[in-house]
Amino acid sequence: MSGEFAIEARGLTKRFGKLVAVSHLDLDVPRGQIYGFLGPNGSGKSTTIRMLCGLLMPSDGSARVLDTEVPGDARQLKPRIGYMTQKFSLFGDMTVLENLQFIAEIYSYPRRERAERIEELLERYDLRGQRRQLAGTMSGGQKQRLALACAVLHRPELLLLDEPTSAVDPRSRRDFWSALFRLAEAGTTILVSTHYMDEAERCHRLAILDHGVKVADGTPSELQANTGMHVVEVTSSDPYHAQLVIADIPAVASVTQLGVRLRVLIPESHANPVGLVEEAMRAAHLDTQAKLSTASLEDVFVAVTLQPRSKAA
């Protein structure tokens, strides 16, 4: 058995002209885990994944992927990696079966076991009814299952998934994630990028990317425990005005409205965060209840991606 990490990246950087898409990224992805990349669009998730599978040449830095230097001999790495593109990239004018057969041939999957493997995948990813359907005419969820089936057909050690669930409904997303857990259970390392908090929460570990920089990483619970912020949940009958008032409190790092509730982040250095909010509410004659809450992943995300606030007030 080789190293503990499936992916180790050091100082990985990608520049497109003047734009720095990924900046000095260090990454350790343990084997057999689901590792999440959480970040908004344009945070460098896709670019990183593309560098890791040799699709893009890093401007700087390097990575070891499955004990192979990247950039380096990508050819011997390709058979060990499965990659699912953000956009559906299979052949829309070929049937489900034909697509799977093509992938099996391209990866030189042992000829005698091909039919059996394909049947197994059709079964597992619930595509038996679609085997003669043209891939281009399927629903978003079906396309996504086919893409996953094709990505794992050759039993890769490492699976790179670039926003795999961005085009599917919640039900399909749930099914998709249980499939991922099953793969991880069998020893596959999975790197998955997403901008859904609930998906990030399911990962064993995750890294939060913002503007090409890794701003936090760890297990979801570690991240939630170490935000460096108090989370105060405020319930108000007039959340709009309450939000305006709270945003004006100098110590407050951020306010996010969730229906009638407000999530308020206040640095941990502050001794009495609930009192601070209640005082401001009383002064503004607003009827509210405030209580301390535990950080959700969304709070973590907000906390670590906060621009250094230049508070005028």
Partner: peptide, 10 residues
């Protein structure tokens, strides 16, 4: 987008 898939294969 097929090309992105193809160049990731052997």
């Amino acid at each position: 987008g097929n090309l992105e898939l193809l160049i990731n294969t052997p």
